[in-house]
């Protein structure tokens, strides 16, 4: 919680470049890994709160978090550096793949190697969710909100905007209610 380190501008760009380039199957797991564990720019809780806010705004949550984290440390320059770090590398790779696809009329086949990587990436994403939940220890009613959101998205396959619309206000209300009760009990 205590020993976080504010990144310099180049460090902000490089950290986000790493997140973008390693982010197979989405960048959420790597973003947390780099920001909370490796570079310690933010505490687990700070990062989760920024990500939560990024989740209810339009756009990718990690991209929104990049704008907000960049701004927090270095204002407009920080927001631009974090955002460009996140997108520039993957964009270059994607264009190269698309050109390859145009030249040869086929995507580079999903080789067994990539199947194995995809399975490991799926586990990485679930492990990240478990780790965040374990570190943050949300109270039981918020755990329930998280599990319901998980079921709505993974089992019922409801549209994400609907899930956010229902569960974000519910989570906020439950969390505020707990804070008010703690306040009243003092």
């Amino acid at each position: 919680m205590s020993d976080t380190v504010a990144p310099t501008k180049p460090a902000l760009f490089l950290g986000y470049a790493k997140i973008g380039l390693l982010g197979f199957g989405g960048v959420a797991a790597w973003a947390r890994r780099v920001i909370v564990e490796e570079r310690r720019w933010l505490s687990e809780r700070d990062y989760a709160e920024v990500l939560g806010l990024g989740q209810i705004l339009p756009g990718p949550n990690v991209g929104n978090a990049a704008v907000m984290i960049g701004r927090r440390f270095h204002g407009l320059a920080g927001a631009l550096l974090a955002t460009s770090g996140l997108y520039v590398g993957p964009l270059a790779i994607l264009v190269a793949l698309a050109v390859f696809y145009d030249l040869y009329g086929t995507t580079p086949g999903v080789a067994p190697f990539m199947q194995g990587v995809a399975a490991a990436a799926a586990g990485m994403v679930m492990g990240t969710a478990l780790k965040m939940a374990g570190n943050l220890k949300p109270p039981i009613e918020l755990v329930a909100v998280g599990v319901l959101a998980l079921a709505a998205a993974a089992v019922l396959r409801l549209p994400l905007p609907l899930i956010v619309l229902v569960f974000a206000p519910l989570g906020v209300w439950l969390s505020l209610r707990r804070a008010w009760r703690a306040e009243a009990a003092k």
Partner: peptide, 13 residues
Amino acid sequence: FGLVPVAIGLIAA
């Protein structure tokens, strides 16, 4: 903090 469970739940999903 009330938004956090939604974010984690959707990562797990």
